[in-house]
Write a protein that binds this DNA or RNA. Sequence first.
DNA 1: ATGAAAGCGCTAACAG
DNA 2: CTGTTAGCGCTTTCAT
Lengths: 356, 356
Amino acid sequence: LKAIKARNRNISIKDIAEKAQVSIGPVDKVLHNRGGVSETTKARILKAIEELNYKPNVLASRLKSNKEYTICVLIPGANVGIPFWSQYIKGFEDAEDELSQFGIYIEIFYFDQNSEESFRAQIDAVFESNCDGIFMVPVFAEQTNRLLGICDERRIPAIFFNTEFPVKGNLSFIGQNSFESGFLAADLLSKCIPESSSILLANLVREADNHMHFQERENGFRSFFEQQTELAGIKVLKYENKSGDDHAIKQDLLKIIGEENVKSIFCTNGTNKVAQIVCEQSMKGLRLIGYDLIDENIDYLNKGVIDFLISQQPYTQAFQGIKLFYQFLILKQPITETQYLPIDIVMKSNLKYYGK
Amino acid sequence: LKAIKARNRNISIKDIAEKAQVSIGPVDKVLHNRGGVSETTKARILKAIEELNYKPNVLASRLKSNKEYTICVLIPGANVGIPFWSQYIKGFEDAEDELSQFGIYIEIFYFDQNSEESFRAQIDAVFESNCDGIFMVPVFAEQTNRLLGICDERRIPAIFFNTEFPVKGNLSFIGQNSFESGFLAADLLSKCIPESSSILLANLVREADNHMHFQERENGFRSFFEQQTELAGIKVLKYENKSGDDHAIKQDLLKIIGEENVKSIFCTNGTNKVAQIVCEQSMKGLRLIGYDLIDENIDYLNKGVIDFLISQQPYTQAFQGIKLFYQFLILKQPITETQYLPIDIVMKSNLKYYGK
DNA sequence: ATGAAAGCGCTAACAG
DNA sequence: CTGTTAGCGCTTTCAT
């Protein structure tokens, strides 16, 4: 990789200054848009920067400036201690470990996933701290929009993770493409079930949060079967119950499974609930696929009740997400657009590699 | 994550010098074991370092010393251009991109996978360049051992990737646990096939390289079925042919598939060959699982001939592997032991996330 | 064996 | 508006 090596020649601000026939003072000002430089010299300096292909030395810059950047993380906190969420924390810790040498620090703000008021309050708390970037799960739309307004004003970059949010503007999202994950689930299930059987699509949301990605998972799932004409024998049934009434859910599920030829279940959420019911009845040969490596799901995976779990890669979301801020704040690179992570299929046999 | 923040206090060599009542000269010498310091002052300095919990500032160190480290990569080169191998190159490029600011550069040496002589010659070439670390695929055992001897003498760290190599000593391996990948393949297949059917395990190695991991894949695969008493109806047949005679292989395979109740095939290698045969005969409902995202396999995956591919994560092997050298050479952390990467299941529907 | 001093490339305050 | 200067923390050379 010699090319890269050659590229990193030691072109310093001194070289630019020399070429532009000024001292390093104005050069630095131009580099940081700090003003106070005449148009003509500015032009000369910019030309020199361009021609010499100057790359700032991040290390030296960092060494001198000692500036500290705080990234505020806004994340549901009711679930602390659950592996799915603690994987995020692990990611934040590792990212800070690596980036603290560049002055990047992370401050975590927890909000109650079911309380818009709590979300609002934590947003306020974030803005009261001086923060140089916000990395968050945009649960409530209205408050998220308010936040974006303030970010815009104060020129604070915000990046979303876990949950997509429909916005225009120079924002970024890091997480899973829900549609594709549903599509993948369908692809996978289609290989594990009889040519003529029913799949039950279960949706048991009851939280007050953004349901968009549950719907997208379903859309992706259905889309797969619509594309495959040879799978015409497969029937997709849907069961939705947002009441939170576990008893009723159980009754309904058992009824459907008993009456229809259900050989598999796809849970867009609430996998653990379905798993519990399936487990109690010890139904053999029923394929079950769902989302998220939470403790309960992991148990059922190990017991063989759940066949597949789709991971959202919380660790990677956190780690990579914070690195985006490094790239923006330190390396001055533009923030990349939406960044979908690989969709991993987790089974009992490769579980250990996916945290916990 | 305030704890981490607090930890990174600016304790500098100046602080140590002050506490130990010397100037910074001897402190630096002690820090780098460069000798020339009296025992008594050395003790005082070490005590101060300990008590103040001194962490060297990598940035400043790097800024001053300007030392360059070259990591030599020793990799089979006959396969350049094949996506599987080009993913490695991508990983090396990205790693160098990130680490060149610390003076870490990569030099790649290609050898012919089928020529021990070429391997030997490239090892010599590596040692002729001044190299500060070796990252390699240990294809030929004898020459690898010779290399290890020289590394030991010259205190050059060597890390293996892709292929495991049985060694004692402070070396590291980064790659896939072959046994577990076979086990996973079995777990996955077991969910996709009739309760009573045969699985064909195909092994078509003909290269002169280290076959250990093909065997391990098989061992893992068999191990799964030995553990599952409820899968007693599954029969594992094995077909091995190292002749390279494609015609004979085809004849044999078709015969076995025709005579036995083969509903699935697990390829420990040569997935593309099997796929080709299966494709020509357009056998419906035959599940095919194998390794490596090479072009041909990807084609067959897209056509639906191959159902699953297990990725060895070449990009990650390369990227993480080079980072190990950063941790060792720059951060002075000990090299970690064997590091197995997640075993990912790649299907048509999530292929795009796994390179290409 | 120890200390003093120069300087890596950059920032930022200050003088002119 | 431009130039000078003092370091950031560390390495290394050179006196002492």
